[in-house]
Amino acid sequence: MITRLYLKGLILFDKVELELDRGLVVFSGPSGAGKSVLMNSVLSSFGYTTAEALLCELSIDRPINLHSEAYSLENEIVLKSIKRDKVRYYLDGQNISKKSLNKLFQPFVKYLSVRDKSGFASDELVKIIDNSLLTKNRSFKKLLKEYRKRYINYKIKLSQLNKIKEDEVKLAELIEFATFEIEKIESINPQIGEDEELLKIKNQLSRIDKINEALTSANDIFDVEESVIEVYRLLDKESGFFVDIMNQLRADFEDIELLTEELSEVDIEQVLNRLEQISSLKTRYGSIKKALEYAQNKKIELTGYQNIEQDKTMLKSFLEMESTELRILAGKITQYRKKEAIVIEKELEKYLFELKLPPIKFLFNPIILNELGQDRVEINLDGSTAS
């Protein structure tokens, strides 16, 4: 509550000092008398507009909920603005920036201007009615909470459906690519460690002729085996270790012969082709293991693509049902608001009468569902609307 106003050096006023009583205060006068200039100076003291007066000083009763850790506040607060080379603001004698001043008093200072109709915007009028209801009607509070919660979920699901529709153009390409990648890897059907085994076979095949040649020459050792054993016998020396060595050689040579027989049946061209396929996968994916993991991930991805159409159908069904439910809830909210609007109209009527103004009436029009419901609200004052 402003209790005192002092102005000096303001366009139409050399000096003004007013003591204000509690309650409704009205400034009246003909056009050009300075009403707007005076109000502008009051607003500038709270950091809302640019200060025009050389000096403006307001004394106000401190609002109950006004607190500040940065500034020391008295029960009667003095706001002062001084305009010289630039405007300086003071709060109980303490220097304060215009931005900080505005932020501090913003919850407590409300004003309407013929140039600014934002206070009469539909959303603002709806919030005024809702706030009046929320303080005294638990049923409305519960209803509004349910509506807002379900509407938020509805918007999320609607966004998901729109995203699916946007991606549908790319979906066929994604499915085709994923299928191609899977089939490419599965057609080769690589096995972990297969590349190492194939390289080993390749190296063996490249030396098979030399292995056979060396094996043929080495087999001559068995022609002198009996002679060596006879020498050990004549010398009365143990020949068991030599016999063991020869038996091991015989077993090893037999294994080598079996290997060369198996290698002779291997198709070298097939081995080289297989190595080329495996090598291409390793070049593309890094390793056989990573290639197999990639194929598995693509299968999961493909399953997801195939489920999108099902998800789309389910989302459409949900949104249709939820839209109906939300409209029912919004309709109930509208009924509460219309009843409360009548109460507010009656409460304002006596103030408007003192101002010699006709009664106001809230006009409701249905709109597309939004977070506040389905109401577009306007104020009608003697046939004129502001929204």
Rank of each mutant, 00 (worst) to 15 (best):
S132D: 06
L205S: 07
K210M: 09
E176K: 11
E168G: 01
E186L: 13
I152E: 14
F140M: 06
L198Y: 13
I175C: 01
N131K: 12
F222G: 05
E197Y: 13
Q160K: 06
S206L: 14
K165G: 00
E166L: 01
R115Y: 11
K157N: 08
T135P: 04
V114A: 14
D116E: 13
I192H: 06
D167S: 15
N203T: 12
S217Y: 09
S113L: 06
S118E: 12
S159P: 03
D195N: 10
E196I: 05
S159W: 01
I182S: 08
E166G: 04
I152V: 14
L215H: 07
K117S: 15
D220I: 10
Y151I: 00
N95V: 08
I211S: 02
E197D: 11
V126W: 03
N212P: 02
I128C: 05
Q204V: 10
A121I: 10
I211W: 03
E225N: 11
T216S: 13
A172P: 00
E194A: 05
I185N: 03
L158S: 11
Y154H: 14
I185Q: 09
S100A: 15
Q160D: 02
L205R: 07
S206T: 12
V114S: 15
N102P: 07
V109Q: 08
F140I: 02
I211P: 01
I156P: 04
I129A: 02
L125W: 05
S97M: 01
K155M: 15
F120E: 06
T135M: 03
D92K: 07
S122L: 06
E168I: 00
G193I: 08
L171P: 02
S132F: 06
